[in-house]
Design a protein around this nucleic acid. Structure first.
Length: 415
RNA sequence: GCGAUCGUAGCUCAGUUGGUUAGAGCGCCGGUUUGUGGUACCGGAGGUCGGGGGUUCGAGCCCCCUCGGUCGCCCCA
């Protein structure tokens, strides 16, 4: 490449053509489904004060400790490009007094930023669709949210992923379980992988889904969350699962499923491609396509009143990979200018077609003798030929009704 | 942050044990032909072989550094 052309930033993408169509398809489908469930559209800032994320995600999480794009603005304030949606939405909920709309169902989508090593299905600027229910303590909110996720995936044509579901219990259950896990793993700490020894201090729950062979022998007998669940927490989880059954959402229990961010409580879930499926192959080493959970403790960490909430997010790029490349819309009418003297007439014709809702293009450049070939290569359904005297003929396949209708709308007929 | 692997025209790639002016297909531009649903043929433009340094009489091929892609670990969506 030329020395003078700056390169794109590592981990960013320039999405084009069939891939861009797949991306748009994911977003359009999400927009449609979200309306069915009456989730309200919100637009959020791309950056926030650093503390919005640092306080809600947890200082020791990888995202906060080494993956955020943080910088001081010209006023000396530390700002951060959003690494996720939930914290910003929670902040907006508090600062805008959205409590008045509770329970509030909102949906959004857009770019997120995380300083990670790029990989298949993982980028530094990536995009998510996101749905949150804020101010709803009842398990029905979890069920509705998961039903929406399930329907979205089906409408995208993704049928080989399954909902993996777990509960982390309420705050007390979670802490008790965590304590028991630390105690259990500390006894065998010397035999664990280096990573898990580190996780023992920072995030012991994560040891449970370690892939390291040195850790695996200890995982099966590790303390289970079920033993620590309070009566309320069990009842909550039971209500979620029976609700899912009633809604026809298939799920499997994943006892070792935990989430990386500190704010999660109760329900935690991920939609994961089935082993050996086409989707699993398409995603490479990234397994989660949609994930989320309940975050009843988050509002307090931002200084708000205790407010129950649930939400999920899904990577648009990952969904687009599962959807596969999509065709761009077919060209209906190509206006072929065979003689430049007819250019004015051709432009008028083109305007009529487009005003009439016909997907149309014009071919009027290059060697006159090759224009026809170039027009044909774009595979239009019809070619409208224009010479010095104006529009004089149409050729092509299939009905011309739409084109004729568009042309009839004009007050000054040309033929 | 760690590991592996790759980096030659716009795209997909070939380039023999290091050896003259670095090639092909597609695409692009032009011409001839054809003459109306992707004709055929001819020609042309386009590469300081990702960048920098080194070894050598000589480097696209070897060594070092660096940037980037890909894949895995980690993390996550």
């Amino acid at each position: 490449m030329s020395k003078k052309t700056p390169q794109a930033i590592r981990g960013t993408q320039d999405i084009f053509g069939a891939d861009a169509e797949a991306f748009a398809f994911v977003v359009e489908t999400f927009e449609r489904v979200r309306r069915l469930y009456r989730f309200r559209r919100v637009e959020m800032p791309v950056f926030e004060k650093t503390e919005v994320f640092a306080r809600s995600l947890g200082e020791t999480t990888d995202v906060v400790s080494k993956e955020m794009y943080s910088f001081d603005d010209r006023g000396g304030e530390s700002l951060t490009l959003r690494p996720e949606f939930t914290a910003g939405i929670a902040r907006a909920f508090l600062t805008n007094g959205w409590q008045q709309y509770a329970p509030l169902k909102v949906a959004t989508h857009g770019p997120l930023f995380r300083y990670e090593r790029p990989q298949k299905g993982r980028y530094r600027q990536f995009h998510q669709i996101d749905a949150e229910v804020i101010g709803a303590a009842e398990p029905q909110a979890d069920v509705e949210l998961l039903a929406m996720a399930d329907q979205l995936l089906k409408e995208l044509g993704i049928n080989d992923v399954t909902l993996h579901l777990n509960t982390l219990g309420d705050g007390a259950s979670r802490e008790a379980w965590r304590g028991a896990l630390v105690e259990y793993f500390r006894a065998v700490a010397g035999e664990l992988s280096e990573e898990s020894q580190e996780r023992l201090e920072k995030n012991p729950l994560r040891i449970l889904d370690s892939k390291d062979p040195r850790d695996k022998p200890f995982l099966a007998d590790a303390p289970k969350i079920d033993a620590f669940l309070s009566e309320e927490a069990s009842a909550f989880f039971a209500a979620v699962t029976s609700g899912l059954d009633a809604a026809g959402v298939k799920w499997v229990r994943a006892e070792s499923l935990v989430r990386g961010l500190d704010y999660y409580r109760h329900t935690a879930f991920e939609f994961i491609p089935d082993e050996g499926s086409a989707s699993a192959a398409a995603l490479g080493s990234q397994s989660t396509v949609l994930g989320g959970g309940r975050y009843d403790g988050l509002m307090e960490s931002l200084g708000g009143a205790p407010t129950p909430a649930v939400g999920w997010a899904a990577g648009i790029e990952r969904l687009a990979m599962l959807v596969g490349a999509r065709e761009e819309e077919r060209l209906e009418a190509m206006v072929l200018v065979e003689d430049d003297a007819g250019l004015g007439a051709a432009i008028a014709l083109l305007a009529d077609l487009r005003n009439g809702g016909v997907i149309a293009e014009i071919m009027a450049t290059g060697s006159p003798k090759k224009r026809y070939d170039k027009a044909v290569k774009q595979q239009p359904q019809h070619i409208l030929r224009v010479n010095a005297t104006g529009y004089y003929g149409i050729s092509g396949e299939g009905p011309t009704d739409r084109i004729v209708a568009a042309l009839n709308k004009t007050s000054s007929p040309r033929t």
